[in-house]
Amino acid sequence: MTPPSTEARARGSRRTDEVVIEVKDLHVAFDGRPVLAGVDLRVYRGETLVIMGGSGCGKSTLLRTMIGALRPNRGKVVLLGKDLHALDEDGLDALRKRFGILFQSGALYNSMTVGENVALPLREHTSLDEAIIRIMVKMKLELVGLRDFESLVPSQISGGMRKRVGLARALALDPEIIFYDEPGAGLDPVVAGVIDKLIADLSRKLGVTSIVVTHEMGSAFRVADRMVMLYEGRVVAEGPPEAIRATADPLVRQFIHGEPDGPIPLRRSKTDYAEDLLA
């Protein structure tokens, strides 16, 4: 499909033509209410794909289905060559060790120190020596700039730091893919910028494939090699950042510029107002 954009290449994108995630005709509904209505998507090894869309557009649901936490009603997700929802628990676990997730709040284990959080996947999934694990923890924490905070517990550090530790933990097993769920949510602009830089760095230095789910446009344009916009459970736009920025599509324009007026309605009610009042 689309080659890496000139802008992305200038940033040092390491995108290849190998498809690592393929989402096919994905349908997810909660209690009969459709949230995803036929999403098709491909992610290439080494690229940073931003999935954007307003709240309620289904981007979190898409993320959760892509990591195997939700089961689709129809369609499938092929992750690293495996049909995700056809795998048994063992197969799924083997696959889970190959990708990492940065959760919205960091999702650190609150009963453990920062160091223990990062060490946990290594202790549980490798037979490495404790001395080596200790060195690896320091290396992962250094990547996110928090090497001195190893012995603190999550409640003692700030929200931005918790996210960075969450990222260090996601990196523990050297994953091929990292999913970022709203990486900038709840952070001040400087810290959000730091996280964006980390995302870009990881992709460039380690060649990690990144999937970033966000509604923050500044951040989206900073990290993306390619962007996908989701609206009402469908992909409505797809392309490199410069194409998205220059688009004539009023829906996309309204979203990236944050305009209150446009095709995206303020009111979500589908019933007639007058009828509803008189009922």
């Binding site: 990591i67 195997g68 936490a69 799924l92 676990d93 083997a94 889970r96 060790k97 997730i101 959760f103 919205q104 709040s105 999702a107 650190l108 284990y109 609150n110 946990l120 996947p121 549980e124 999934h125």
Partner: peptide, 17 residues
């Protein structure tokens, strides 16, 4: 319950724990 709400349980699951 708090671990479920703060996605810690999901984090465990997706780390194959």
């Amino acid at each position: 319950g708090t671990m479920v709400v703060s996605e810690e349980v999901l984090a465990l699951e997706t780390s194959a724990l």
